[in-house]
Write a protein that binds this DNA or RNA. Structure first.
Lengths: 109, 109
DNA sequence: TTTTAATATCGCAATATTACGATAAAATTT
DNA sequence: AAATTTTATCGTAATATTGCGATATTAAAA
């Protein structure tokens, strides 16, 4: 017991959940906001920006990369990170669908 | 160790993370999609729609309610649930800000 | 080639989440 | 009032996440 029953949900549901889950931690939100703030790709100063150990930041970056929320490319002896606009758009589209469906809906609450 | 360091991040970051976290489980995505599918509020048949025990569904509903993603109101001896459009809009705005900032950004990845 | 710098991974402890049976609570029906 | 229906909560086991020190890896610099 206690194991997530991801096999009983469809692929889209699992995909959406995993993207949202990746966004569901303040450290990862902070990473995203830092990437936005510097107005370019980041090659190497993310660790210094966060009040977390290097190993921890690396783990969070990995999760954001797995969810394709950020992209990373090797640049010399550091790695450049930036947001993946495709995934942001993907989430926005999902939410737009929700909003559009809600518009035509009879709500009692 | 291992405890989330939510105290070192700002309020907005923690708020965003908690909303995304609430969306970060396929069962909760399925609940949301079911609420959309029936095209109205749901008074009582969520449990039968999901391949999960009643206690588990109740727990997921609670999390969605805590994150203000759904609203619930008592209706006779059942409870009516529907999506909270405000929270959906809140998330969309956050993502719009990201997209807008990305537009003016020099990306190297 | 050795040193340095930047990231990633391992291993572990602490904590959180997930799932569900059992039971409680509250309103409806009989 | 007793039975039924609906939802919430408790307790607990299984699993997942978080955080970090230690260590590995990889590339640049000296």
């Amino acid at each position: 017991m206690g194991i997530s029953k991801i096999d009983v949900f469809n692929e889209r549901q699992n995909k959406m959940a995993s993207v949202f889950k990746a966004l569901g931690h303040p450290a990862r939100i902070a990473i995203i906001e830092h990437l936005l703030k510097v107005n370019s790709c980041i090659c190497g100063d993310i660790v210094n920006e966060l009040p977390l150990a290097q190993a921890t930041v690396s783990q969070h970056l990995k999760e954001l990369k797995n969810a394709e929320i950020i992209k990373g490319s090797v640049e010399g002896n550091s790695i450049c990170y930036c947001l993946n606009p495709n995934t942001i758009s993907f989430i926005k589209e999902y939410l737009n669908n929700i909003t559009n469906t809600l518009k035509n809906q009879i709500n009692c609450c």
